[in-house]
Design a protein around this nucleic acid. Structure first.
Lengths: 361, 361
DNA sequence: ATTTAGCACTCTTCATATAAGAGTGCTAAC
DNA sequence: GTTAGCACTCTTATATGAAGAGTGCTAAAT
């Protein structure tokens, strides 16, 4: 292998993140190549690249550049006599420094906003957002349920189910509701439960779940000596509910859209992907990483670290209530996706969802 | 086409339902053919059928019988030089009168029962039943959420969300919970809501939703003149909640298992099927039809009336609480499935789910 | 009258061969 | 530094032929 002509800056995690040191021509050609490939889905050869690019170069010259890009790991060739295809790293350079995102028409934004208006409770806002994303991108939409830790407790109710089982109902933030069955050590009378709920509501209504957690721990310590059975019980319930309320989850929509892409024409690949959707664990882990991000975050191909997502890209954006990030939404599709369209859509949808949630306070 | 030698009884809906008039030999051969095809997934020829069947016949004789079965529409041939494959009608005759179901080992039943024990609330009982079905049959499991009309109201709570929005929480039957956002005509104070809930609980706790509906109508009529604003409001809330509580739904599990079958190797077929799963409408309509059945009910291939389910079979059984049918569960897979195993599994699971729901009362 | 052996026939599947086409890498000329 | 030319590789499509599976029909056997 000959040494590369151009230097590419590598980030801390060992991946290409910048093309500052790629010369003008190489950048231009990489950009055009990615655009062509995203548009047509076919490996693009030197000939058609010469035609598509504004540069006035012969195919032979272009072939030289392509060889360099290939050495840098930005493009690859399916076989000798096919054109070049971007690698995950190639897409990364494209997204980071070559891409100019399309601005959404304001009427288009209006349309999105309209879809997220709180008219009619069904289906829920999260599900509508997820469907919206999948519908407008023709890929799969993904919206995590809001984090309870950062969510505000609005109300808690206890309902006796049977002997030792109590149903705890938490109204969170807004109309999001979580139900949890709690197995208690002893039976509780209805009046006892009502009082427990009353106490908890008076203490913690409007508090975040983090604060609730702390308050519960504190109260349990204080109550050590002179604990009434009721307080003790209420605390137990709250803590247990708190624990089971920490489950992360997401709402997925439009998976079937992915079946239209040739990338997933291999049914075993497709199956693994869908199993990952159903399993949720890996996706949730990935989405959790996006919670810390300020804005749109993208995983391209193997960057995710999960084999199943080998030829998938995940475009995400966190959504906020009261300025605090409480969840993430995004779109999942083949690495070969129209990033310039998808990125602003995800970005705007996150903002609109946050706004919709806020307006419900 | 030559005329058929054997008469097949046709049921009211125009489908073959009985093979009483098929002679002994034809029945035996059809049975063996279906068994072979279910086992191997290959069209079965006269030669191998001669070997597999207990009958001591030459391939040539068998070919004669096969020609008759083909005329009757019970088997078909993919092409000239392939063996025969059962049609939907062929499967129907097999299931109705040729099949002997396998009895489940009692230890196997124990294992199923164990999986449905109410230990740990997560995931919910319905979801566990659905997963159970998909896991043990290696196909897709399906469980409808219980019908609210026949369900018993255990408790209702109202929570004020914002100006004109009230969250109604219905605890039904057992730990099943439904949340509904109600848009009210005017704001309600917390105390008002509490009283409304108290009133409704005192009136309707333990009643079925049908009775609730009647009670609501009656109370609204009585209250016409001397209606307190509170009663009126409570009634409105209850009625609206009632209306939105009528939505049917199901829990699906193990769809990805279907991707392993050659029947769904065509990705466009697969996509349509998965879209039907997501759409839910058609499946629900089909499942509704099974509510009236006493026991296991089966749709084979095009019997369902939906094109997407062309090469699917759906095996269902209603489940009961307090002797009343409140829902349906089942398994969906290719028409080529091991009916002798699946039928008792679905049957038993329905009983076990009913029992598990009952034991929670 | 039923059953069966024999046989011609059809259709699929697999392997092989061939030609066309696309695109490359290299070299030498511009 | 750029490009034309060219040999080379690899894919794709198409044709061909042989093997194999299974059928339907007919005539002989039971």
């Amino acid at each position: 292998m000959k040494s590369a002509k151009y230097v590419v800056i590598i980030s801390v995690d060992g991946r290409v993140v910048s093309s500052n040191e790629l010369n003008e021509r190489a950048q231009q050609l990489l950009k055009t190549l990615v655009e062509c490939y995203i548009r047509d889905g076919q490996p693009v050869g030197s000939r058609s690249l010469a035609r598509s690019s504004d540069l006035d170069l012969s195919p032979a010259s272009i072939r030289n550049v392509m060889a360099d890009l290939e050495d840098l790991g930005l493009v690859t060739s399916p076989h000798t006599s096919a054109g070049r295809v971007p690698t995950a790293q190639g897409y990364r350079v494209f997204v980071n420094s070559l891409l100019q995102v399309q601005l959404l028409e304001s009427e288009e934004v209006q349309r999105l906003r309209h879809q997220l208006e709180p008219e009619g409770a069904r289906p829920g806002l999260l599900e509508r957002a997820s469907r919206l994303l999948s519908g407008v991108t023709r890929m799969a939409g993904l919206v995590t349920v809001p984090r309870p830790e950062q969510a505000v407790l609005r109300q808690v109710e206890f309902v006796s189910l049977s002997e030792n089982r109590v149903l705890a109902i938490f109204v969170i933030n807004d109309s999001e509701v979580q139900n949890h069955v709690i197995h208690t050590g002893r039976p509780f009378a209805a009046a006892e439960l009502t009082q427990a709920a009353k106490y908890l509501n008076s203490q913690f209504r409007g508090k975040t779940f983090d604060e609730v957690r702390q308050g519960v721990v504190q109260a349990m310590r204080d109550a050590k000596d002179n604990a009434t059975s009721l307080l003790q019980a209420a605390m137990n319930l709250a803590e247990e509910a708190q624990r089971s309320a920490e489950q992360r989850d997401y709402v997925l929509a439009g998976q079937t859209n992915l079946m239209g892409f040739s990338e997933f024409s291999n049914i075993s690949t497709l199956r693994q992907l869908f199993e990952a959707f159903a399993e949720k664990r890996d996706l949730l882990h990935l989405l959790d990483q996006c919670l810390v991000s300020k804005g749109v975050q993208i995983f391209i191909g193997d960057e995710s670290g999960y084999d199943v997502l080998g030829n998938c890209s995940l475009v995400t954006a966190p959504y906020r209530v009261d300025g605090k990030v409480i969840g993430v939404l995004g779109v999942i599709g083949p690495t070969r996706m129209a990033y310039d369209r998808v990125i602003p859509i995800v970005d705007v949808t996150a903002k609109l969802l946050g706004a919709a949630l806020n307006s419900r306070q």
